[in-house]
Computed example of a mutant assay.
Amino acid sequence: MRTYKRKTNRGSTSKDVIDRACQQVIFDKKSINSTAKQFAIPYKTLQRHVVNMTKKIEKNPELSKSESTLDSVGYKRNRQIFSDEEELALESYLKKAADIYYGLTPYETRKFAYEFAKKK
């Protein structure tokens, strides 16, 4: 597996910070621009999350301030098939096979991963 080195810090604002900023805008009636500057979040990003949280609150009006949080923030993994636990299990099996000199070729590894996904 290759190691990726991140080149920018885009999309790295934590979910907690975005939630607090959105709650200030929605519940405390602060402006998006001043809140974005206060939390060092891009204006458009905060605006998008405020709209999403407002829609979520409109769908379920009995949500309190502490219960209203966003589902996800930042970039998502592309086409993730396995959960983190399944990926670790597959990785440990492949490492164990390589340790006992039964290493699989890249083609065989992909084929094995496909069969593993079908079983799951």
Rank of each mutant, 00 (worst) to 15 (best):
I81M: 13
K95T: 00
N52Y: 05
R10K: 09
A97W: 02
Y101N: 13
G103E: 15
Y93F: 12
H49N: 11
K65N: 13
N78E: 09
S34D: 15
Y101V: 03
H49P: 02
N60K: 11
P61V: 13
E91R: 02
T8I: 08
N78I: 02
K76F: 03
D71C: 02
V51E: 06
P61G: 12
S92A: 12
G74I: 05
T69H: 12
A98W: 00
F27T: 03
D84I: 03
K76H: 07
E67A: 09
V51M: 09
L70H: 10
D19L: 06
Q38L: 14
K76V: 03
K55S: 10
S83A: 08
Y75A: 12
F82Y: 11
S68H: 03
S72T: 14
T45K: 11
M53D: 05
H49V: 03
V51A: 12
Q47L: 08
S14F: 02
L94S: 02
F27N: 03
T35A: 00
K56M: 13
R10V: 07
E62Y: 09
N33S: 07
P106I: 05
L63W: 06
Q38G: 02
S31H: 02
P61R: 12
I41E: 11
N60R: 12
A98L: 04
N78Q: 12
P61S: 07
K76C: 06
Q38T: 15
E87W: 06
